[in-house]
């Protein structure tokens, strides 16, 4: 399964880019219209976190799609989707630092040390930073083989991101949503393991 090359580069890729911005536009619109309910700050923080996680999973899904249905073009969307994951995660983190903690660094540090769901969330974000920095093609060329090794960080960081969500929801005794993400991640990682041992 492939799209004609001009269709892919001139139409599909920009379309994916535009679609990836839709959550941001909707969130911005919701803030502008004050239609995010009684606690808009919580709503925006949650939804940017959700989207960071969704883009992570989408990024992971592209190579799975290549192996399972032979869609090789998808890999060329991977950098973009990965960077969108980083983008939404950054907004999510900034909202926490600013509107939840009001840049009280002492409080933030205590939060990171004492609260496991914050600890793993922060760890996942830290691991995402080198991946974003080394995303340009020039970096890939410079790092060579080490680039690939470095980018396997996406596996543990995705697990930490799901765990972050899980532990946050677990306090409310409702893990149905994080469970769904965990299952999708398990399928994506499981497929990789399967390919590895099959070979």
């Amino acid at each position: 399964m492939q799209f004609p090359e001009p269709l892919f580069t001139r139409f599909l890729k920009p379309l994916v880019f535009a679609c990836a911005l839709i959550p941001l536009v909707l969130i911005g619109w919701g803030v502008w219209q004050d239609s995010l309910g009684a606690n808009p700050i919580e709503a925006v923080t949650r939804s940017t976190g959700d989207w960071a996680l969704r883009f992570l999973l989408l990024t992971l899904a592209l190579s799975t799609l290549r192996r399972l249905v032979g869609w090789t073009q998808g890999i060329r969307l991977r950098r973009m989707l990965g960077l969108f994951a980083f983008f939404y995660a950054s907004v999510h983190l900034i909202l926490y630092l600013w509107l939840d903690q009001f840049f009280d660094w002492g409080g933030i540090w205590r939060d990171i040390l004492k609260r496991p769901f914050i600890t793993v969330g922060m760890l996942a974000f830290l691991m995402l930073i080198p991946l974003a920095i080394t995303s340009p093609k020039a970096m890939l060329r410079r790092l060579g083989k080490r680039w690939k090794t470095l980018h396997t960080l996406i596996y543990p960081l995705s697990m930490l991101a799901v765990l972050h969500f899980w532990w946050m929801k677990d306090a409310k005794s409702d893990v149905s949503e994080p469970l769904l993400y965990a299952l999708i991640l398990a399928a994506l990682l499981g497929e990789r393991l399967y390919q590895r041992f099959k070979a």
Partner: peptide, 19 residues
Amino acid sequence: VDHPRWSQYNERRIGEFSK
């Protein structure tokens, strides 16, 4: 006394920006 997962030190009053 913190909740094990978050601090109970402050709160967001619904309708207010700061905690």
